[in-house]
Each structure stands twice: as structure tokens, then as C-alpha cells.
Simulated scan of single mutants.
Amino acid sequence: MVSEKRLIDANEVCMYLSLGRNRGVEFARSIGAERKIGRRSLYDKVVIDRYLDKQAMEV
């Protein structure tokens, strides 16, 4: 389940953000959530949550 993991793959990040694959990965990269482990790209859910929380506070 996505909510239990800290590092999630591209498909999971897109499901988590409710975005399409290209837009979800592009967004995660742009906020610095991408983590390279070997040749694999994973995305840090904590970074994504922190960014979204910060955006919510600015509104």
C-alpha cells in the first residue's frame, strides 16, 4: 500500500498525486523528491507531503 512506504515508484507517485505519469514525475522532480538508487528512480513521499503542506499554509 502506498501510504505505508516512504519511497514510491513513478506509478505510485502518480496515483498518490492523482496526476498522469508525465505530470506526476515532472512535479516530483521539480520539488526535489526524486531519489536515485542505482539506476532506479524513486520519489520521497515525505518531501512531497512537506511541499503540499507548505503550499496549503500559503493560501
Rank of each mutant, 00 (worst) to 15 (best):
M1V: 13
M1S: 13
M1N: 07
V2W: 01
V2C: 00
S3M: 13
S3P: 00
S3I: 11
S3T: 09
E4T: 02
E4K: 04
E4N: 07
E4V: 05
K5T: 00
K5W: 01
K5F: 02
K5Y: 01
K5A: 03
K5R: 10
R6W: 05
R6I: 07
R6Q: 07
R6C: 06
R6K: 08
L7N: 02
I8K: 01
D9E: 13
D9N: 13
D9M: 05
D9W: 00
D9K: 03
A10V: 08
A10Y: 04
A10P: 03
N11R: 10
N11W: 06
E12L: 00
E12I: 00
C14K: 01
C14R: 00
M15V: 13
Y16K: 01
Y16S: 03
Y16C: 03
L17V: 04
L17K: 03
L17Q: 08
L17F: 03
S18N: 14
S18G: 11
L19F: 03
G20N: 05
G20T: 10
R21F: 05
N22G: 14
N22Q: 14
R23I: 09
R23V: 06
G24N: 06
V25A: 00
E26C: 13
E26Q: 13
E26P: 01
F27I: 01
F27H: 04
F27L: 08
A28V: 09
A28W: 03
A28I: 09
A28M: 04
R29T: 09
R29S: 10
S30K: 12
I31R: 02
I31T: 01
I31W: 01
I31G: 06
G32S: 07
G32F: 09
G32W: 08
G32L: 07
G32C: 05
E34K: 13
R35F: 03
R35K: 15
K36T: 12
K36L: 13
G38M: 05
G38S: 08
R39L: 12
R40Y: 06
R40T: 09
R40K: 10
S41R: 13
S41W: 01
S41N: 14
L42K: 01
D44R: 05
K45C: 05
K45Y: 06
I48Q: 06
D49R: 08
D49E: 14
D49S: 07
D49C: 03
Y51D: 10
Y51S: 10
Y51W: 12
L52V: 05
L52T: 09
L52I: 11
L52H: 07
D53K: 05
D53G: 11
D53R: 08
D53A: 11
K54Q: 15
K54W: 14
Q55I: 15
Q55Y: 08
Q55M: 14
A56H: 11
A56K: 13
A56L: 14
A56R: 15
A56Q: 14
M57W: 04
M57S: 15
M57Q: 15
E58K: 13
E58S: 10
